[in-house]
């Protein structure tokens, strides 16, 4: 594992954490439309702990680093979001062990492991109006771009654009998982809060990449 790779992963995790903290109110407002309004609060409490513990994490390799993040957020994020986001980081961590270098292909594999983990842990799938409806098709798009030989910057832009479009498109879906599912048909017309949060996070990661 190269030091450069770890620096990239650190940038990604730090941006996720900082965005979750900065956007606490906005994420909460998304969730209040049909959910119980605690998404912003929950994510912020988990990721502010990540920032607070930042210097204490071991940095032997990407996998070890990500696993410690998984422990922190699973422990600190309340409700079901803790185990769901924690599983995503844990599965990405385990998958990272298969790669000597975190290339675009490795990133796709880690994203797939993360979304598969969320599906398994939450007993959910595409169409249930969750963040999966944004992240899974966006990962498909990222993979398609990489396979087509597009340059790295174009791949990143396409990934962010696809996540945003798919997140907005969750408006058409009826919530089948989580607290939002209690709203049933009334959830149609508003996008899923988790999907929108993921879109905003990925847009920040992509926008800041050149100066990371």
């Amino acid at each position: 594992m190269t030091a450069t790779n770890l620096a990239d992963i650190e940038y990604v995790v730090r941006t996720i954490a900082q965005t979750a903290v900065d956007k606490e109110k906005e994420f909460g407002d998304f969730d209040a439309v049909v959910g119980d309004g605690d998404l912003g609060y929950s994510l912020a409490r988990g990721f502010e702990k990540v920032l607070a513990d930042w210097d204490s994490y071991k940095r032997e390799d990407v996998s070890t680093f990500l696993q410690q993040i998984a422990v922190t957020i699973t422990s600190r994020i309340g409700g079901s979001s803790g185990p769901l986001w924690g599983t995503a980081f844990l599965r990405a961590s385990v998958t990272a062990k298969q790669f000597n270098e975190i290339t675009g292909t490795a990133a796709v594999a880690m994203l797939r492991a993360a979304t598969d983990g969320i599906k398994a842990r939450g007993n959910s799938d595409l169409g249930d109006k969750t963040l999966l409806d944004a992240l899974v098709p966006a990962t498909d798009e990222l993979e398609r771009m990489i396979t087509s030989g597009a340059n790295a910057a174009d791949c990143r832009e396409a990934f962010a654009k696809s996540t945003r479009e798919r997140a907005e498109a969750t408006s058409e879906l009826e919530a089948k998982r989580g607290r939002a599912s209690y709203s049933g048909e009334r959830s149609i017309g508003s996008p899923d809060a988790g999907a929108l949060a993921v879109a905003i996070i990925i847009e920040r990661i992509v926008a800041g990449w050149p100066e990371r």
Binding site: Q67, T74, S80, P83, G86, T87, R121
Partner: peptide, 16 residues
């Protein structure tokens, strides 16, 4: 709630 927490703890501990 218990199922989610314990499955997660099992997976994390197994990874360690």
């Amino acid at each position: 709630g218990d199922k989610m927490v314990f499955e997660m703890a099992q997976e994390m501990s197994a990874a360690e």
